[in-house]
Structures are given as structure tokens and as C-alpha cells.
Amino acid sequence: MRPTRRTPDNPRLPFPARPCTGPDTVGDHARTERRPHTISLYAQLVRYGFRKHATYLAGALAGAFTNSVFGILRAYILIALWQARPGLAGYDVADAITFCFITQALIAPMQLFGGGLTIPERIRSGDIALDLVRPAPLQLWSLAEDLGRAAFLLLARGLPPMLLGAVLFGIVTPTGVTRWAGFLAGLLLAVLTSFGWRYLVALSVCWLVDDRGVSVVSMVLTTFFSGMMLPLTIFPGWLGELARALPWAAMVQAPADLYLGKAPLLDTLALQAFWAATLIGLGAAATRAIRYKVVIQGG
């Protein structure tokens, strides 16, 4: 364990003022002994995650461009499929097109290709030890930042494909307060599930020599079983039933169905909440295991 530098505590600045430095550099202080500060700490972390990603606006817009191009290409495939099979899976053509652009809009906020957390680098560099001795729990800390990240990417990389889809093909929009509320709740639960999954993947680095395998497997499972490539509702037979019950369905298929009003509201939210809670619970257990491994065994 390396010695900890002491910097004067400034309750207003629980994170470094420079947005480029990681959550990491905070490491040394961020003392949160008094309760009222805890809430503001996490609120600040959400903001910090947002700002950190907002510094890469050009990159985000470039990503939005690519997502939009893929949205257009995939939309045509779905149009051809729904022309051959009108009403397939209870969607009409407009629903299918909308679904397609929602999936592209959610790629970045749900981080479907993996990543989004700095934990693997910090495990490799050994800096994770600093994070683990902090009084603020690592998982909550990471979650707060990730929510900020997701919020920014939803705006910067989610809105452009949706708007383009609306202009080029026309997309449906939810009607009524209930559907909007359901969709927004589904979106939040989707981010929580996505975080829960990626956090587990990130921590697995601690036990593996070559972590590329895990990231590829995670990427394959997430892109294919979230509904990003095709609606899970058209997966045939048992494969479809299985896919719709797995955690990845909570990341894209569920919020998309809530948006389209094609799924029972409470059942869908319940499934999402179940997966979010399960994955985050597993994450908490994994955090304890890694703390034991790093702090007690010394990495």
C-alpha cells in the first residue's frame, strides 16, 4: 500500500476542479463523515461524470453520426422484414423503425459495446487500493459517475439518431403521461442494469490475467441479447423466451417496449428492477471480495 498524501479537505470540492483528471485523483481525501454531505457528494459526482464526458463533445457527436448511419441502414432491413411480415411481433412498420432508432440512441448511454468505467485501468495500475480505502463505497461512487455519463450521452448521442429517424422515416412518440413516466422509469432502470453488469465485468479483471475474453463475451451477449441488433420479440421459440428474460433485455428491449407501449408497464419495470437489484447486489459482494483481496492480501 502506498502512502496517502494529505490534502486539506474542502467540503465544496469533493472532486478535482480539472475535469480531465479521473475520479481517481480525488483518492486522497473526499472525507464524508457528516451525513448531509453524502447526498451532495453523490450529486456532485453525477455532475462530474456528466462534465467529464462533456469535454469530449466532438467525439460524442462523431459517435452520434455513426449511430445515425447504422440506424438508417438497419431501419431499411426492418422495413423489408415488416413488409414481408406485416404486424410481426405486434409491431407495425412505424414501430419497427422507431425501435431501430431507439436501439441506436441507447448504444452510448447503455454502453452496449462495454466499458465506460475506469476501474479496469485502476486495477491494472494498482490505484484501486486508493479507491478501496476511501470512506465512500467504490460501487456507489462509480454508479454516481456513471449516471452522469449516461445522462450526457443520452443527450449527445441519443437525441441525434432519434431526430434523424423522425425526419427521414417518421417515428412514433408515446402518448399520455403514464407512458412517458413508464418509459423514463424504464430508462433509469436500464442504466442501473447496464451499470450493474459492467461493474461486474470491470471487477473481473482483478481475477484474470487476460481480460480481453470477458470483454468480448460481454460485448457479444450485450449487443445480441439486449435487442440492439434485432428486436428480441422476433427471436424464434425458446431462444426468444430466454432472451426476453435475461438481464440484457432490461437494457434496450424493455425501455424500447415501454416507449412503444408494447409491453405491460408494471411487469416490465419489475423485471428490470429485479435484474438491476440482482446485478448491483452481486457487485456489492464482488466489491467486498476485491477489498479482501487487495487490502488484506495486498493485491
Binding site: 422484414l81 411480415r85 424464434p236
Partner: peptide, 13 residues
């Protein structure tokens, strides 16, 4: 796999 799933739902595209 996507192509195969599409053709599990239709015979022609």
C-alpha cells in the same frame, strides 16, 4: 445470426 433470425421470420427479404 441476425440474418438467420430474420429468415426465421420470413422466407424472402
Amino acid at each position: 445470426a441476425v440474418i438467420l433470425v430474420v429468415f426465421a421470420n420470413t422466407t424472402t427479404l
